[in-house]
């Protein structure tokens, strides 16, 4: 069964169609790039998968279920913006995540914080922006989830931090879990992707295995993206 499935999924904000009849299914064990320019509907799709929005029409299913309490147990979500209270420390957050999610692995989280020399006693407010983002990613990836939904995980960070984030994703997801990474920074992520989904103005314009695209077109996914979305 597909871990994530969209059937005729549409979402409108008033007169604006953010998603317009999206159909696709993602199998377990894949790392999928959800790629599209700003405003194409990536974040809307991810919020729908988390039950933060409800569809205007169609369906989005996680393991065959409508997003809700049961699906949140198996979905680990990294929002586009920081969602963590800044007065908390990483140590307090680990307690918080451990209480909320049965699949949270505190040992893994601790090891990752230690490797980055992040002081787990310090309040988030007193950490650098880069380190705050890393703490949030660590909390998300330290869950033993079935589906990771990462909304722009490499958006605002420097290239060294990007490498850290990508290697964290590669080393922490288990081979039966699925990772969906939404981004417009394709050159940085394309070597970790199994599949790519191009989304434009709320519609899926291309969905295929990354290596198959490169083979057929003799171009990198980054180049193909630039051609599909040429301004």
């Amino acid at each position: 069964m597909a871990i994530l499935e969209c059937k005729g999924l549409s979402k409108s904000y008033g007169p604006v169609r953010a998603l317009d009849g999206v159909d696709f299914a993602v199998a377990p064990g894949r790392i999928v790039g959800l790629l599209g320019p700003n405003g194409s509907g990536k974040t809307t799709l991810i919020k729908l998968a988390n039950g933060l929005l409800t569809p205007t029409a169609g369906q989005i299913l996680i393991n065959g279920q409508v997003p809700g309490i049961e699906t949140k147990k198996v979905v680990s979500y990294l929002p586009e913006r920081s969602c963590l209270p800044e007065w908390m420390s990483a140590a307090q957050l680990m307690g918080f995540y451990g209480d909320f999610y049965a699949d949270f692995d505190r040992t893994t989280a601790k090891a990752m914080l230690a490797r980055l020399n992040i002081d787990s006693k310090a309040r988030l407010r007193h950490l650098s922006k880069g380190n705050r983002e890393k703490v949030q990613l660590i909390m998300v990836m330290a869950r033993r989830a079935q589906l990771y939904l990462l909304d722009e995980p490499i958006g605002g960070v420097d290239p060294a931090a990007r490498d850290f984030i990508l290697s964290t994703i590669l080393s922490n997801y288990n081979p039966t879990a699925t990772v969906i990474i939404s981004t417009h920074l394709i050159a940085d992520v394309e070597r970790v992707l199994d599949d790519v989904i191009f989304i434009s103005q709320g519609k899926v314009v291309l969905a295929a295995p990354a290596d198959q695209l490169r083979e057929q077109q003799g171009k990198s996914v980054d180049q193909i993206f630039r051609e599909v979305f040429r301004c």
Partner: peptide, 17 residues
């Protein structure tokens, strides 16, 4: 496979293939 994939910074499925 996992170690090699991590070292190369690629997807483990790609390394396996």
């Amino acid at each position: 496979v996992r170690e090699l994939a991590l070292e190369a910074g690629v997807n483990p499925n790609t390394m396996q293939r």
